[in-house]
Design a protein around this nucleic acid. Structure first.
Lengths: 243, 243
DNA sequence: GTTAAATATGCGGGATCCCGCAAGACAAGC
DNA sequence: GCTTGTCTTGCGGGATCCCGCATATTTAAC
């Protein structure tokens, strides 16, 4: 008596997943479906789902937020993230919320049938972690300190992407103004923002702050959902500070 | 003897589209498929395709760029854009490149079977334009001057999102420094960026420039593909300026 | 335990940004 | 013509950003 919950907003992908689950897990006798994160959370709570397949990019409430609240309630839930992209923003977002010792997976939608089915069995039956090669590569590059970003640096990157002033960032992280600016300089360095843009010396420089955000977006260090989440956290912080 | 070219990177969606085309257009005797924009361009050129269904968000080369080069070569090509989103950035991007008097369509993937098939017939057989209601609504709101953005304003918004300095923007648009800054003030006004962020008066302001970009991203006035395109155009401009 | 490296903080200054004020340019409408 | 409104440009100044220089403090390494 095993149940699997599918959270995925695309009907075609949903039914494809349904079939895959049925084929890979004959011991599963109930497959639930949710068409966005909000509904998925509800179903997970109601059915105490222990096995979830989760899309990341959904309209109503995205997969990372849904997974976070689900894991907060029951940290031993096994979740397989099934996504189109291996953007650093997503990978970071996921690994930030996975609880200690939880079994989870991250496979791309471009993966083969077999890989998906294998991952389903490994995670749900064997409680193993399965991370796609591309995603794993991303993780390595991200955490490997060559051209990778510290957590603090990443936080500050997000902060300037949100449009905070240096002073605000300093207050938020309990740092001095100058320290924040040091971090920013490191960021500019790592993001390779110091090139001139025009031929005239001393004439065509970028606005470093803005350029850093642009480059981060182009390199997919940041994406919409990361920004959205960060904006929510910022507002929350502003809220508690108010009181 | 009618041919239809499908450009779509998701295999499931591709085969769904294939079926839909077959069902809606029995007079069509050849359906070609491409898995990204680059391949799509090639096939379109090779087969002189006059009827194309195009996804917007693709990895290798996105739908807007592909459509632009295709339309540049044969402006009477009929293209149906089939996308997940009605973001203002996409809508603007599409309407910027559609040639005078061309027949095109924009329907969402969430649309029903019937709507898709109807759109296929309307555009390919009758040369009519078919724009989904949600998308149309977006267009209205975008162009209607209440809370809508001028083309110039939008250009400048893109420029600060790319991280250009005021001076650079001025040079690019042949404006004075001060005019650019006027435009920026309008932008800040329209994007509602002037609110304080903290309780201390005179203490917690946003960095307006950065905040404007953040808000624009959150409101989906800008998205990844728009940035990518803008970055390419910027580099092109820098190139010709060099010589 | 000593050295080296990374990190945090302060000071100061030049560049840029943000913007109020004001004057000229151009078009539309009466 | 006159007015009104929008757009442009210049000037000037305060705030912020970017960053070199110098000094603690912490962390890592041997």
């Amino acid at each position: 008596m095993m149940e699997v919950l599918i959270v995925e907003d695309d009907p075609l992908h949903r039914s494809y997943l349904h079939d895959a689950v049925r084929a890979a897990l004959p011991e599963c006798d109930l497959v639930l479906e949710a068409e966005n994160g909000r509904v998925g959370e509800g179903l997970a709570r109601q059915h105490r789902s222990a096995h979830i397949v989760m899309d990341l990019q959904m309209s109503e409430r995205n997969g990372i937020e849904a997974a976070r609240t689900i894991w907060k309630e029951r940290p031993d839930t096994r979740i397989l993230f099934w996504s189109n992209y291996a953007d650093e923003a997503y990978v970071r977002g996921v690994s930030r919320i996975v609880p200690e010792g939880a079994a989870y997976g991250y496979v791309l939608k471009s993966a083969s049938d077999d890989r998906l089915k294998l991952a389903l069995r490994s995670i749900f039956m064997e409680a193993q972690c399965v991370i796609d090669r591309e995603v794993r590569g991303m993780q390595q590059k991200s955490l490997g300190h060559v051209n990778g970003f510290t957590d603090v640096e990443y936080e500050i990157l997000i902060d300037i992407a949100l449009g905070l002033t240096d002073r605000m960032i300093a207050r938020r992280h309990n740092l001095s103004l100058r320290s924040v600016q040091n971090r920013l300089q490191q960021l500019y360095e790592k993001l390779n923002v110091y090139q001139r843009v025009g031929e005239d010396v001393e004439e065509g420089r970028y606005n470093l702050r803005g350029r850093a955000v642009a480059v981060a977006l182009l390199r997919k260090l940041i994406n919409y959902s990361a920004l959205e989440r960060a904006e929510a956290e910022l507002n929350e912080w502003l809220g508690v500070k108010q009181n």
